[in-house]
Simulated scan of single mutants.
Amino acid sequence: MAMIHSNTSHLPHTFFLAGIPGLTAAHLWISLPFGFLFLLSLIGNAVLLLLISTERRLHQPMFLFLAMLSFVDLVLSLSTLPKMLGIFWFGATAISSHSCLFQMFVIHAFSAMESGVLVAMALDRFVAICNPLHYATILTPGAVIKIGGLVVLRGVGLTIFFPSLANRLSYCGSHTIPYTYCEHMAVVKLACGETTVDSLYAFAVAIFLGVGDVAFIAYSYGQIVKTVMCSSPEARTKAGRTCTAHVCVILFFYGPGFLSVIMQRFGPPTASAARVILANLYLLFPPALDPIVYGVKTKQIRECLFTVLSHKRIEPP
């Protein structure tokens, strides 16, 4: 807790999460789809983690990266949805300042990790399609572990300063955060001092993660397209099947994320209902929909799930 404690801090004892501005009367109804997405996230990601950990056929780099994605999605859901539902159901808007800063760190760190995992999955597809003969020698178990470690270190290293930066500010005005969770810039905007450093650092991290990671993913898929265009129709079909799920997950994650950042930076100073809902979808959609996409689009996962449900063993081909 050292990173969020300071003798010179002017943090209030408590912040208040407003929920969705202008839609307070509809919070109960809004909670229904949010709660449904929460259940989908918990069940879907838990099932994926169980399948990948118990089925030896899934102990491959592609599915190990998917297990990392499922774990990150579970943490993001558990760090945000229970408090959101508490606001919607019971009006439990209060959150201690240290809990708020800790939630801020977890949300941003694991969001950065999710972006890193998507990059790792793009690398996996690039090697599998563009250099299949060396796939096993490039993406060894040791290499997968090192990539996973780098994803974690990068996510923590880039976002660990968010709570410290917010902690050093003075909060002499409103203590109400116009969101359902402690988003970094939403908290910083409540400060009454100079916040240029916070704003520039947050923007730099967003650009580094968003533009840098998307550029790498785009390059990987550019090479994949170039390779499959010179292949047989059967190879193109197989490549399309193996990449479709990953492309869908990328759109679920980066689409709302980019829109949320743009609205945060260039929208009106007061948070609108649309901006808050979009920020929530950025955290809700990927954890809930990723397991469904991979379950529907990935033959091996479907077969393993059928094996578990039918209590029969499917022999590998």
Rank of each mutant, 00 (worst) to 15 (best):
G116A: 14
I43L: 15
L37M: 15
R125H: 13
H98N: 11
D73Q: 10
S99E: 09
V117S: 04
R125I: 09
S41A: 15
I107F: 01
A94H: 05
F102K: 03
T93D: 12
M121N: 05
L74N: 04
H108C: 12
G116H: 13
W89V: 06
H98K: 11
Q103G: 00
Q103A: 02
L42R: 07
L69A: 05
L42Q: 10
A120D: 06
S96K: 11
S77A: 13
H27D: 09
A25L: 07
V72E: 01
Q103P: 01
L32Q: 10
V117L: 05
V75N: 00
S70R: 05
L58K: 12
M68A: 14
V72M: 00
P61Q: 03
A26W: 14
F90G: 08
S99A: 12
V72D: 01
H59C: 01
A25C: 04
P33G: 09
M104T: 14
L78K: 01
L51M: 12
C100K: 02
M68F: 15
S31I: 09
S41L: 10
L40T: 00
P61H: 01
R56Y: 08
A120F: 00
S99W: 08
F105T: 00
A122K: 07
E55D: 15
H108L: 07
F65M: 08
F90C: 11
A94E: 09
